[in-house]
Design a protein around this nucleic acid. Sequence first.
DNA 1: TGCGGCGCTGCATACGTAGTCATGGCATAG
DNA 2: CTATGCCATGACTACGTATGCAGCGCCGCA
Lengths: 349, 349
Amino acid sequence: MLTSSDIAREAGVSQTTVSRVLNDDPRVTKETRQRVIDVIDRHGYTPNAIARGLVTSRTSLVGVLISDIMNPFYPELLEAIGSQLAAYGLRMLVADTASQPEEVHARLLVEHRVDGIVFTSALLDSQTVASLAARRFPIVLANRYVDGVECDTVTTDNGGGAKAVAEHLLELGHERIAVVTGNEKSSTSRDRYAGFVAVLEEAGVGLDPTLVRTGDYDYERAHATTVELLELTPPPTAIFCLNDVMAFATLNACRRLRVGVPEEVSVVGFDDIRASSYEAYELTTVRQPLGELARTAVDLLAERVAAPDVPPRSLVFPSRLIRRKTTAPPRRAIRRRTVAQADGRRANG
Amino acid sequence: MLTSSDIAREAGVSQTTVSRVLNDDPRVTKETRQRVIDVIDRHGYTPNAIARGLVTSRTSLVGVLISDIMNPFYPELLEAIGSQLAAYGLRMLVADTASQPEEVHARLLVEHRVDGIVFTSALLDSQTVASLAARRFPIVLANRYVDGVECDTVTTDNGGGAKAVAEHLLELGHERIAVVTGNEKSSTSRDRYAGFVAVLEEAGVGLDPTLVRTGDYDYERAHATTVELLELTPPPTAIFCLNDVMAFATLNACRRLRVGVPEEVSVVGFDDIRASSYEAYELTTVRQPLGELARTAVDLLAERVAAPDVPPRSLVFPSRLIRRKTTAPPRRAIRRRTVAQADGRRANG
DNA sequence: TGCGGCGCTGCATACGTAGTCATGGCATAG
DNA sequence: CTATGCCATGACTACGTATGCAGCGCCGCA
């Protein structure tokens, strides 16, 4: 491979000058610059970012940690992050923590001296995040936060979104509601569940513990769980899945069992990934402003790299309920709802 | 950041010895090694892969070029590639050519001195691939090949898969078949289309040119195209989409227009991505052995990095038709098929 | 006891670039 | 005409690691 010295020799200048040309240093004559550029073009020389990184201790590389690239939520997030990084001249080093533990990936990223790391799937007790934050390595938590760690964080209002779901379902008259939770160690699942329960309790509508199942944000698991739920007597009238992928699994399980949605059971998801709006699903769900979230996360990271000493910032973006066609009043809701309202709700209100 | 010299000083050894410990060099006493490891652990030292890369001219980084990360096919492929790379101790530098031209991404990857590049979405006339191959830079084409370029290539038998689709549809009695093609400059789309047409022609079943539309492997575009196709009189009795994502679009368009699948129109896809088997679609499609494809691509690349002078190899994996529920005989097929068979097909057989 | 050999360690250097400091040329001001 | 200063350029060095080569001590064999 050619080096800048090779180019310099051929152009009759010093390696320093070549370096200046490559970095758009203004103190190079137009003629000299052109001469160097000609030689570069002629030979197809490519500067060595490794050597540059060694000197500048900047690599223009940013690690992005993902837990499950098969979940379409993450490609959507990745795309947004990637394009915003590109705006800063940065590149993504993607690592899927499905293949190896988060810690291993993070260590390798640090070895490669990435300028920073974006965590999209950190768990609440992530030691990796804690230790990196303690060492003041530039990181940003996008989508999920970590308990007890002070660092730049960008999330959606998961609690608020789940509350909107609860209000929506209550409004429709549902009282026997199942919840399929996500990864129990994720802040998203915890916050969504907490927000949902809070509204239900306030309304005096209890959540039957046997109707709360963990789906681990996993399609297969949620599918199996839904089958179990639908075989209960009586089955729930509504199922709130804490992400869209699990909601798809639920909808598909309903199809398999020939359970009508929303006639027999309402289904709600969370995320509003692209496929949620497809005719195959038309899922009622909660929209996250993914673009803004990603953009802000990258902005924060870039700022931190530039100024490591600014205090950590946490931003929360609002979420929004998107009503589509998977929610409706429960069967025989008219009667039951009136009774319920006359009895339970007023008594508790 | 700590350096190996810092560790060396503290452990009372030379930087060389620290380097040897890190690289599992056998000629270091057990005691010395332990002493060094202790210091490393105590300080949380992380070796600098940049500096290492400068010396060894190996980065353990492999670039992976993707055209559209939102197409679930690519996350599936990515996951397979990533896990196989991990087996070699290599890491993925993912670049989505949706954000910037392939050429720009490739240049940056080369600047970062990646050990090699996996192209998953190269177009038939890719200058980037041609120039890299000419410079003997280690690359491998996975999924798609490039015309006139000799380099390691791993593909699925796209022509064969499409032929199986054609035979399947003919067997069911379809004669008015629409095709929604992919990116016209991709080898996959070209080969699939060619294989499909070949079988139809051999059977004496013509392909009405107005029924051949480009969908560019894009969901939205295929959705709109399907609407147009279904509004024709008479509409096609079957639609072959050259990938699954477009087939989903077609199925969803059918849902929107309340066109029964497979009663009124049969739909076939290609790829067999995960969602194709979901109850929402149950798509008849062609399965690609994605795991094998990815694994082999990485193997080839690794071998080429080790031995740059071995002649390029091209491997083609068989594809397989997966019959699900989106294909059936056309309406009034019994009569029409018999007539057709008695006339056209026998006359041409 | 002497010498060769082996096992362990350290010294010095190279990798390709960016940046610091020095140099020489030229113009402008005194 | 000289002094000052700026501009364009170049020599030199550092970045952190790996590696070739040298050194040193110890063991075994003659």
